[in-house]
Write a protein that binds this DNA or RNA. Structure first.
Lengths: 239, 239
DNA sequence: CGGTGTGTTGAGCAAGGTCAATCCCCGTGG
DNA sequence: CCACGGGGATTGACCTTGCTCAACACACCG
């Protein structure tokens, strides 16, 4: 059930068999969520966190004028709202962008884990810090990159993240979101996203259709995006 | 030395005297940093983290074309690069925006703390999640708010954060940064920052000069910014 | 007294936004 | 089999926010 989470963690540090057991014992419940359902609401108190088993989730915030900004994407193997464990109250909402399977982890179990397994605690802490590193890269994208670079960078990031959990193909990956949702990620309008995708297509850098990102040449895309994967902490280190 | 960090934590949870002792014992060294010195470089491995004793730090990332984006501001009481403890390698650089006093905490001590003090571990974990919550609010600002709202929101956030550590006055707070640095925070050009500040001044919402943000009416500013402090987790809860 | 860093302002420009029409795919019901 | 409807994608025409370039003001400091 949490295979992909284990893949994600194992890439970053060694996990012992007993630790693996411990992690496998975290989920209390498994659920299937329909597309476009919000499963956690900003401002609400939480007492469990969500591991994505498969499907695509996002976190978002709404503005009073109707604007919405997606602040992060979660794919299989991600602990989508682990930050809720220490924050106690979410500042963002969690939405299923596709039909999803999720595993629910009661905070009580996480708390117990922090009492008994310092190493796993540090690893879970690490994953929230990784999320924050991704936020920082998005801040950079939104603040300083052009629409084209921003989109190219986004595709690079998600390719790598899918690759980590075995969900990337050499020529692309499945990304079940609409252009409108893409716009909500990139701080653009849907119209401009459409034009930017057209540009990427014409430049033969990437092709987004039917929920699939096709990447003719990953190196070309990375170089167009000035993509540097350091922020994704891909090295294995004792943590 | 870490008084303001204690203030910041005590607002969010109860800290026992023995825990306080434990926290006070974290710093190994104290340093004074001159304005405009970068004290930690993106991509570099780190084995210590920085507590701001006083002064103003920021984290930033550079783009190849010369663009720079500041991804966060740190004031007295902040653990500026605690994320480095689990990430091992920084994805952003840390710069002193004013002359700063900092305390250095070796990661070895943090590691020991995670082995022995689960509650303090959760609290420190909380602070990195709080940083991430701030990142998310910045993502929202950069993606969806106008220059005016963005700036107003930024001033509100920093007023509250200064207030928490006793550094806010009812009518404003000291913020020793230049308009250029402000631009690097807000994803704007210095010229546009200047015009936006002029607007804020004319609307009698805020006045930024000589490193001081003067706020005639905090409520007016908050309402112009649509500022909601939920994301700053101001409640005291067992964590 | 000149240099450097910072702030201010104007004029013109461009990236991206807005509005609105059209298209395309696909599922549904007659 | 075909008409219909709805969600999403695409495109054109025009507009606005914020950017670029450049000049100038001002303070502080060696």
């Amino acid at each position: 059930m949490i295979e992909k989470l284990l893949m994600k963690l194992s890439l970053r540090d060694v996990i012992s068999p007993s630790e693996e057991e411990r992690l496998r014992a975290l989920p209390a419940e498994r659920q299937t969520i329909e597309r476009h359902r919000t499963i956690a609401f900003a401002g609400r108190e939480v007492n469990q966190s969500i591991i994505v088993v498969n499907g695509l989730l996002c976190r978002y915030k709404d503005l009073r004028n109707g604007g919405r900004q997606i602040s992060g994407i979660h794919i299989a193997g991600d602990f989508a709202d682990l930050h809720g464990f220490t924050l106690k109250r979410l500042d963002d909402s969690i939405l299923a962008m596709t039909r999803c399977e999720i595993a629910l982890v009661p905070h009580e179990r996480l708390r117990k884990l922090t009492e008994e397994c310092p190493h796993l605690t540090r690893l879970l802490w690490f994953t929230t810090n990784l999320d924050a590193a991704i936020h920082r890269e998005w801040v950079l994208s939104l603040g300083r990159r052009s629409a084209l670079q921003r989109m190219a960078h986004f595709f690079c990031e998600l390719w790598v993240r899918h690759d980590i959990v075995g969900l990337a193909q050499p020529d692309g990956f499945a990304l079940g979101m609409t252009q409108n949702e893409l716009a909500e990620c990139m701080g653009l309008t849907p119209v401009h996203v459409n034009r930017t995708l057209k540009l990427l297509r014409e430049m033969d850098l990437a092709r987004f259709r039917n929920g699939y990102v096709e990447i003719p040449g990953l190196d070309e895309l990375k170089s167009a995006a000035e993509f540097d994967d350091t922020y994704l902490s891909l090295e294995s280190r004792p943590r």
